[in-house]
Measured scan of single mutants.
Amino acid sequence: MAEQVALSRTQVCGILREELFQGDAFHQSDTHIFIIMGASGDLAKKKIYPTIWWLFRDGLLPENTFIVGYARSRLTVADIRKQSEPFFKATPEEKLKLEDFFARNSYVAGQYDDAASYQRLNSHMNALHLGSQANRLFYLALPPTVYEAVTKNIHESCMSQIGWNRIIVEKPFGRDLQSSDRLSNHISSLFREDQIYRIDHYLGKEMVQNLMVLRFANRIFGPIWNRDNIACVILTFKEPFGTEGRGGYFDEFGIIRDVMQNHLLQMLCLVAMEKPASTNSDDVRDEKVKVLKCISEVQANNVVLGQYVGNPDGEGEATKGYLDDPTVPRGSTTATFAAVVLYVENERWDGVPFILRCGKALNERKAEVRLQFHDVAGDIFHQQCKRNELVIRVQPNEAVYTKMMTKKPGMFFNPEESELDLTYGNRYKNVKLPDAYERLILDVFCGSQMHFVRSDELREAWRIFTPLLHQIELEKPKPIPYIYGSRGPTEADELMKRVGFQYEGTYKWVNP
């Protein structure tokens, strides 16, 4: 592979701008107003304001973009700056750019259920340069409990009458099928589907988006991507930290609602779906819905739930269990780990287990898709061969690698495990991989909904998990304890083995 010439960040961002501006969906010269509902909250200060700053800094926003914060707290732009700027990672050389960014910011205080507050917000936006005809993007960085009041008031008082209007809704989209349907029906009564952007930030990850290209742009994968060759698929999300004093919020939802029903299920769809007619948003989402419709409700015998306990040999936070978090209700049975087996009941995947695993306070930070292939028929190497695996590593250190057998150097035919490896950090030294939120917010500006969740996708996802969630809430089974920093409950490994996964433990990928 030829040595790549190092590029400056300015040059890299210039390439990104060229890609972005050559499309006809990006209205570079139009006025846009980006409204952050819930501007005083954690999500706004840690993710949304920093993301908008990065896009502005790199010249990736339309030229005439204004940012308006809205929340109940009586704040000023200076207050917003004070709480969000520490997350910007701005350099001293960017000081003038930073001043320009905050000059485009404003803030309006108001209630979430008060019509007069929204009329005041609308008047404020109209007073901005060309504000009355601007395109408006409303980001709901809010708890779902206020979605209905907020969307109703936005629709009645704050819509642009000339430009387009788009609304970005953060997960969780309800707690179960019934609450999700209620919320979807409410929002759909106010906005068209092409105006609604239900954001799952995992769909903005580079390697998640790469799944489609790997599958449908490489001839070698087509013939082997089926039940005849693939023994099982494992989708993993692991965090090495616990709730760390923020367990009160987590306890309301648990690990299945927080990660599995959305992030992991979306990745499953991209692995299992048929080739779409095109890369058009609805063509892709149509195929994802077909996959979900082929999955039956989760069966309790295919589920393992766990909850982390303190590690007596650990240090600091590792010595504390979930129930030691003062914000967690006493005696909570909320799971911090889950392993679930699903089956896609169609011709391509009949009988292939899709194993979804996620948890907190585990032994490493990792998100990946792992396809394990069947054993080689007619073994001539005296059971020395391990199964081939194709691994798409989402985070950290984005990579695609194939675990395969090669001859060990020497005189004899002794096979050993090795890999074919594409590590993004080595291959793409001159490429700026956008943060997931950067990519998705740019998608909203461009009107691309491919990486957002459609209402029928959402409904099918909740259909699969709601009976299990209701059973857990009714019966309150005690989750299996696992030690902070471990791989999780051993019962999860036993479940995976029972459905056909072979864990060798003899080879570990190392970032080159």
Rank of each mutant, 00 (worst) to 15 (best):
D79W: 04
N126K: 09
Q209A: 10
H201Q: 10
E244T: 06
H27T: 15
V77Y: 04
N105E: 00
I52Q: 00
L211H: 02
A149P: 07
I162R: 12
F221E: 01
R104S: 03
K47D: 06
H32W: 03
I52C: 06
E148S: 07
R72L: 06
R120N: 07
T31S: 08
T236C: 04
F250N: 04
Y139R: 00
C13E: 06
E244L: 12
D200P: 10
Q22Y: 08
F241S: 14
A149V: 07
V150Y: 00
C232K: 13
E18D: 14
A90M: 05
P86H: 08
F26R: 05
E18S: 10
P143D: 13
F241T: 14
Y139D: 02
L7W: 04
L128A: 04
K97R: 08
L214M: 12
M207W: 15
A2N: 13
N135M: 05
R227A: 11
L98G: 00
M125Y: 00
G242E: 02
D114Y: 05
I255Q: 10
R227P: 00
D251F: 00
A231H: 10
N210C: 06
Y70I: 04
S117L: 03
M212N: 02
L75P: 02
L128R: 05
I224D: 04
T243S: 10
Q161S: 07
T236M: 03
M125T: 08
L128N: 03
F56R: 01
E252G: 11
Q195L: 02
G163H: 02
L183K: 09
L140I: 06
F21N: 06
L142N: 15
R182G: 11
R215N: 01
R227M: 04
L121H: 00
H32L: 13
G14T: 07
N185C: 14
Q83L: 05
R74Q: 11
L177S: 05
T31G: 06
K46S: 05
V12W: 11
G245S: 09
N135G: 03
L121C: 02
I15E: 08
F237I: 11
C13K: 07
K95A: 15
F237R: 04
I167E: 00
Q4W: 10
M125G: 01
P62F: 03
G222L: 08
F237G: 02
Y70V: 09
A71N: 04
A127W: 07
T51S: 03
G245H: 12
P50C: 02
P144W: 12
D200C: 12
I48Y: 01
K97Q: 15
I199R: 09
K89L: 10
S180C: 01
I67A: 01
L43Q: 10
E239M: 11
I67R: 00
H129M: 14
R74C: 10
N153D: 03
A134Y: 03
R219A: 15
W53T: 00
A127M: 07
L211F: 14
R136E: 00
Q119A: 10
N229V: 04
Y249A: 14
Q178R: 10
H155S: 11
G23Y: 14
F87P: 01
R182Y: 14
Y70P: 00
A115V: 12
A44H: 00
L177M: 12
A141L: 04
T236F: 01
R17K: 08
L190Q: 09
E239T: 11
H27V: 10
Q161R: 02
L96R: 10
R175Y: 14
K45A: 12
R246F: 14
D24V: 11
V108K: 02
K152I: 12
A78V: 04
S29H: 14
V12F: 13
M159I: 11
S188T: 15
E252Q: 10
L211V: 11
Q83M: 06
E193V: 03
I154F: 00
M159S: 13
H129P: 11
R182T: 09
C232S: 11
F241Y: 11
I256R: 01
F221D: 01
E19A: 10
H27F: 07
T76W: 02
K238Q: 15
V233K: 02
R120V: 13
V12G: 14
K89F: 09
Y112P: 08
G110Y: 01
S8E: 04
Q4K: 12
E18P: 05
V12R: 10
A71M: 02
I256D: 02
N210Y: 05
N105S: 07
R17G: 05
A2Q: 07
I255M: 06
L55A: 13
M207N: 11
R246W: 12
K152L: 12
R136M: 06
T145S: 07
F173H: 04
T145D: 12
D200H: 10
M207F: 14
Q83I: 05
V146R: 14
A39C: 06
W164T: 04
T236Q: 03
A141P: 01
I234Y: 15
H27R: 12
C13Q: 08
L130D: 10
A127D: 09
D251A: 05
H124I: 03
I36A: 02
S179H: 10
K171M: 06
N126R: 09
H129D: 08
S188K: 11
F191N: 00
E193W: 02
I36F: 02
I234G: 07
F253G: 06
G14I: 03
E63H: 14
F253D: 14
F173Q: 07
C158I: 02
Q133D: 11
F221Q: 02
D30R: 07
T91Q: 11
L60S: 04
L121W: 00
N229S: 11
E156K: 11
P143V: 06
K89V: 07
A71F: 02
Y197P: 01
N64I: 02
N218R: 00
F102R: 03
I255V: 13
F34L: 03
A217R: 03
N135F: 01
W225Y: 07
Y202H: 15
R257S: 12
I224Q: 12
